[in-house]
Design a protein around this nucleic acid. Structure first.
Lengths: 356, 356
DNA sequence: CTGTTAGCGCGTTCAG
DNA sequence: CTGAACGCGCTAACAG
C-alpha cells in the first residue's frame, strides 16, 4: 500500500504492481501438495462436488481459500485429451467480414458461451482448398461440432467417416447432400415474394443483376424470380436476368453499365442478388447520370440499415440470423448428445422490408 | 461401384457411400501396429523427418501409402499438453457483428492461418463481467496469444501474472495501462483532420453527435475536435458537442432531435462518432423533414461503402484494419518468441474519405 | 471422507 | 535406421 501512488495518473499500474506478487498454481497437484491434501480432495471441491462426497467443511475451506488467493486455471488440453471432448465448436464460412456471417457468428457465439463452448473460426474466401484445410485443422483440434457454409459439395474424408463423432451442421448453402443437417433461409420464397412485389410496383420489366449464380442459395432466388416473371406475363424472364461470376462491387458496376447501354437509359426497376452488387450498380448509376435517380425502384437481397439513406423506394430481404443460429445450435446439440439429427433441413423465412 | 447410381441427381451421395467404408486411424500407434513398424518410424515420416533419420525408402512408402489411403488426424490436445503450446490465439472484442471488428478479425485470421494458428473468438457486448469470463475461458484453453479490445481497464489476475507466458496485445482501446502493447488507430489526428476539414467546408458551426464518450478512442477524437474548434474560432466547442451514453441508432436519433429542436432548423453541418449514431441522426432528419436535405455537410467516424448512397458531401474516417491486424500480429509473435514487445504503442493513421 | 493409480496421444530421449 | 519408455495434467475407478 505504500506505493498506491506508484504512478499517479495511470490508475492501472497500481493493480499491476500488486497482482504481480502472487504466483498462480497451474495444476491441482500443485495445490494439493501445497496445502497437504490429496489431488482428489482438491478436485472435488474445485468441481463443486464437495457436498456430494462429504468433504469436511474445514478441508473445503482450506482449498477454497487457497484458490481464492492464488487462483487456478484448468488445463483444457489435458481435460480434452482425457475426455475426448474439447467443448469447442468450429465455424467455417466464406468470409468473416461479410455482415451476414458476422451476425450469424455473433448469435451463435452467445448460444455457445451459455453452454461453456468456445468458437473456433476460420474463413475460406470461397476457396475449396482453403476450406479443406480449415476443416481438417479444426477437426484435428477435436472440435465437438462443426458449423459451416461450404463453398463446394461437402465431401471431406474426415467428415464423412462414420466413426467421426463430430457433429456437423451446414448453413446458408444447400448443396443437396444427404449426410448433414442443413439450416438455411427460405431463398425460394423470399425470391418469389420480393420479385412479385417488384413486378407489382414496377408495372413493367424488372431487371435482376445476379452474381454467383452457381450457389444453391442464388439458384433458389432465381427460381423465385422466374416464377414471378411468368406470373407478371414477362415469360421466363431470361432476358431480364444479368449474370456475373464474382459477387462484388465491380460485378454490379459492370452489369449496370451493360444494362444501361442496352436500354439506352436507366432501368425503371431493378434488383440485386447481394448488397455488394447493389453498391456497384448504384455507383454506376451515379457515374452515368451524376446521381441516383430517385424514381428508380430498387430491390435487393440482404438488408442493411444504410439503405435508409436512399430516397428511393427500396425493397429488401432480411435473413433472420438469430433464428438460423438457434436452429444450427439445436441440430448441433442433438448430435453431440449422441442422437441423430431430427431434421435434415431447416428453412427459415425471411422478412421483406419496404422503405419509403 | 455397383451402386454408383445409388441416388441419381444427388452427386454428393455417391461420394458419401464410398468414403464411409474407410476407417480412419486416430493415433500413430494404431498406424504403427497395423503396418508392423514402430511408433517412432511412423512419426518420423509423418512429420517429414524421414530423410533426416534415413528411414528406408520402402518403409517410408508403406507409411505414406497407408496414410494416403486411410488418412490420419493429429490429436492437437495431446500435442498441446505435451508441448505446452496450443497454436491458438484468442480474440476478444465487444461485438463481433460490428463491421470494424469483423474486418479486423478477418485480416488477423489470415495472418494466423499462415502460421498454423487458429483463432478462438468471443465477444463481450461491452460487459466487463463477460469480458472477464471470456479471458479466463480462453486462458484456460491455453491460447498462446490473446488479442483483445477491452471494455474496462485491463486488470485480470491471470493476465497480469508474471508467470503467464501468454502473449497479450490490446487493440482499438487504449486505457493507458503500462503492461501490454497496444495497437490502435490515430484517433486524435483523424479527429483533428476530419474536424478541420468540416469547419473549413462548413464555414460555420459543426455539431458533433458523440456517443460513448468514456471510451479512450472517443476521447481522443473529441480532443481533435476541440482543437479544430479553437482553430476555427469556435471556442472550445463545448456547446457544439452532444453526448449520449449508448452507441446505437436510438442515441443518434435522440441527439439529432434535440439538436433540431434547439436550432429550430436542421444543422448545416454535423459529424458523428460512429456509423450507428449517423444512421440514427439521418433517420431523424428524414422523420423531421421528410428527406435528408442534400445540402447538409456530413462527417463521420468509420467508413462504409453505403455512404455512397447519399447525395450529400460526406467526409468519413476509415481505419486501416489490415495494418492494425498486421501490427497486432507482429507484437504477438514477438512475445510468443519469448522476447519483450519492441513497442508498447502502435498508432496507425486513418484515411479521410471525401464523397461528392 | 480421502488417497492412489492408470491411462488419454503425443513428443523427446536414449538405447540399441 | 528402429524401438521403448517416460511424462505433460486431468479424469475416473477403485481402494482404503
Amino acid at each position: 500500500m505504500v506505493r498506491a501512488n506508484f504512478w499517479p495518473g495511470h490508475p492501472a499500474s497500481y493493480i499491476v504492481f500488486l497482482q504481480n506478487l502472487i504466483a498462480m498454481p497451474k495444476t491441482v497437484e500443485e495445490i494439493a501438495k501445497k496445502i497437504g491434501v490429496s489431488i482428489t480432495t482438491v478436485r472435488l471441491v474445485i468441481n463443486g462436488q464437495a457436498e456430494k462426497y462429504r468433504i469436511s467443511a474445514k478441508t473445503q475451506k482450506v482449498v477454497e481459500d487457497y484458490v481464492a488467493q492464488h487462483g487456478y486455471v484448468l488445463n483444457h488440453a489435458a481435460r480434452s485429451l482425457k475426455l475426448k471432448r474439447s467443448d469447442a465448436i468450429g465455424f467455417v464460412v466464406p468470409e468473416l467480414a461479410n455482415a451476414f456471417f458476422a451476425r450469424l457468428m455473433s448469435e451463435l457465439e452467445i448460444l455457445c458461451r451459455n453452454r461453456g463452448l468456445v468458437l473456433l473460426t476460420a474463413s475460406t474466401h470461397e476457396d475449396p482448398e482453403q476450406e479443406n484445410r480449415a476443416v481438417e485443422s479444426l477437426l484435428s483440434r477435436g472440435v465437438d461440432g462443426l458449423v459451416f457454409a461450404p463453398c463446394q459439395i461437402p465431401g471431406h474424408k474426415q467428415l464423412l467417416n462414420k466413426k467421426s463423432n463430430t457433429a456437423v451442421v451446414l448453413v446458408d448453402r444447400d448443396y443437396n447432400q444427404l449426410r448433414f443437417p442443413t439450416v438455411l433461409s427460405d431463398n425460394y420464397h423470399s425470391g418469389l415474394d420480393l420479385s412479385r412485389r417488384m413486378f407489382t410496383e414496377a408495372k413493367g420489366p424488372v431487371h435482376f443483376l445476379c452474381a454467383h449464380a452457381d450457389l444453391p442459395s442464388i439458384q433458389d432466388r432465381l427460381r423465385g424470380f422466374s416464377v414471378a416473371c411468368q406470373e407478371a406475363g414477362q415469360g421466363a424472364g431470361t432476358d431480364l436476368i444479368h449474370f456475373a461470376n464474382e459477387d462484388n462491387t465491380a460485378a454490379g458496376f459492370q452489369m449496370m453499365q451493360s444494362l444501361i447501354a442496352h436500354l439506352c437509359t436507366v432501368p425503371a426497376a431493378f434488383m440485386c442478388s447481394s448488397l455488394l452488387v447493389l453498391e456497384g450498380a448504384l455507383q454506376q448509376l451515379k457515374a452515368s447520370t451524376g446521381s441516383i435517380p430517385a424514381h428508380i425502384l430498387i430491390g435487393t437481397f440482404d438488408d442493411h440499415a444504410m439503405l435508409d439513406l436512399l430516397p428511393n423506394r427500396v425493397l429488401s430481404v432480411k435473413q433472420d440470423e438469430a433464428m438460423l443460429a438457434s436452429l444450427v445450435f439445436e441440430r448441433l446439440l442433438e448430435q453431440m448428445g449422441g442422437s441423430e439429427a431430427t431434421q435434415m433441413r431447416n428453412t427459415v423465412p425471411c422478412r421483406l422490408i419496404c422503405r419509403n
